[in-house]
Design a protein around this nucleic acid. Structure first.
Lengths: 233, 233
DNA sequence: AAATAATGACTGACTGGTCAGTCATAGTGG
DNA sequence: CCACTATGACTGACCAGTCAGTCATTATTT
């Protein structure tokens, strides 16, 4: 899974008279010198992941420079390679770490047995508060934008996150359908329930500056229409 | 609007003793030697655009190599620069040329005054036949993936395409609402109508291989539920 | 408790491969 | 016959990944 052929290091000529190493650099400023190694190490990792999210989401995977990620994390470039195998691993780990926690939250939602209107509200609030108003929004946008070029990552995301979310939503829809609250055929397409969320994320990235979108209101409108009581059938 | 600082060519050293130019290359095979210059020229342009779409949509903007685009179009790399200023222009022109024609089609749809169920069918069919089953799907996916890094392009797309499509859909919704066929508040969010289309495109790119999606059926389900007769309100 | 040694986290200059864009040269249609 | 079209080798910028060297911290000895 490589975007370019490997840049193997087959240099045979010995490297001589290198290094002079100027005076001593300012050490990483961000992290207090106290704290045990373990803690500092975890903080570094997080700082790198956070910086990577910023860089990847403004420039995209290819265009993002690890030099910039390092600078933003107040770390030397080499340090990144102590925590992640390569640029791609960093990217995958970023997505993994941000999205995995979502699953539990949503599965919990799927199990509760509450009336449909309440459920609808919860779905909307969960999305707005846990995704749209956090950096997870950016991670999902990254997944959408770059996922196609990382089949392994898409597979991971499908297997570990999406399929479970879909299963949860589906079981929830199935129970609502059994109670006659929604038509049976909606159970086949849980994607429909989530669709405006996706639109919101994409819109936010591309067109917010031309035409702001009231996400909560849109989501509310959508679920209300989907789940509204119907005349027949 | 640049991803990297310009690669200006400020080389001062004169380039000497270059060029030897080997024998003569096989000429571009794809385009018949007949045909007037104008026709050949237009065909080349199209071949380049088509090749660019393939390359951009499999590798992404940054990773796509113009060498590959050239090879795929049976053209030398330099030729691309006779038709497009640079890689970015090529990309923008690609999106521009593929999506602009959509507008007229959809505006026509927005003006017809037909009963809602018929309209719903037409919307679904239009999307499936004119977008999902054509390369426009790939162009829209490109727009979604890369648009964020091309603010100018996003603006163009919003101004020339999206805002007009939205206006058309909105006017169509407004009339339906006036006839009492749908609730008023749906008029505020034409995005909701299009949302499953977007989901379909993204899904197709990322997850189709794990779980195929019957797009036509999903779209149909969605518009039927949105436009279904309601009990109250 | 102070001195000394061992550890390994961290650094950043450097390398090699890559590719957008150029331009000297070669063909060709009108 | 020459203006226009096309070519593709070449250049310079660029950047992921490397690794020899530097200390801060921890462990050990005295």
């Amino acid at each position: 899974m490589m975007l370019r052929p490997p840049r193997s290091r087959k240099s045979k000529t010995p490297r001589e008279n290198r290094r002079k190493r100027a005076v001593q650099s300012a050490r990483a400023a961000a992290i207090p010198a106290s704290a045990s190694r373990k803690v500092r190490s975890a903080e570094r990792r997080d700082a790198i992941l956070s910086a990577a999210l910023d860089e990847f989401s403004t420039r995209g995977f290819e265009a993002a420079r690890l030099d910039d990620v390092a600078r933003r994390a107040s770390v030397a470039k080499g340090t990144i390679y102590l925590y992640f195998r390569d640029k791609e691993s960093l990217f995958q780990e970023l997505i993994r770490s941000m999205l995995t926690p979502l699953v539990g939250t949503i599965e919990a939602l799927g199990e509760a047995d509450v009336p449909l209107p309440v459920l609808a509200d919860r779905i909307v609030e969960l999305f707005v508060r846990e995704v749209y108003e956090t950096r997870r929004k950016d991670v999902i946008r990254l997944m959408i934008s770059e996922g196609r070029r990382f089949p392994k990552l898409a597979e991971f995301y499908y297997r570990e996150v999406l399929s479970r979310i879909i299963a949860a939503v589906r079981s929830l829809l199935r129970r609502a359908a059994a109670r006659g609250e929604i038509p049976e055929r909606l159970v086949d397409f849980p994607q429909i329930v989530a669709a405006p969320g996706l639109v919101a994320i994409v819109w936010n990235g591309l067109f917010e500056r031309f035409e702001p979108l009231d996400v909560r209101k849109m989501m509310k409108t959508h679920v209300e229409l989907l789940f509204a009581p119907r005349r027949e059938k």
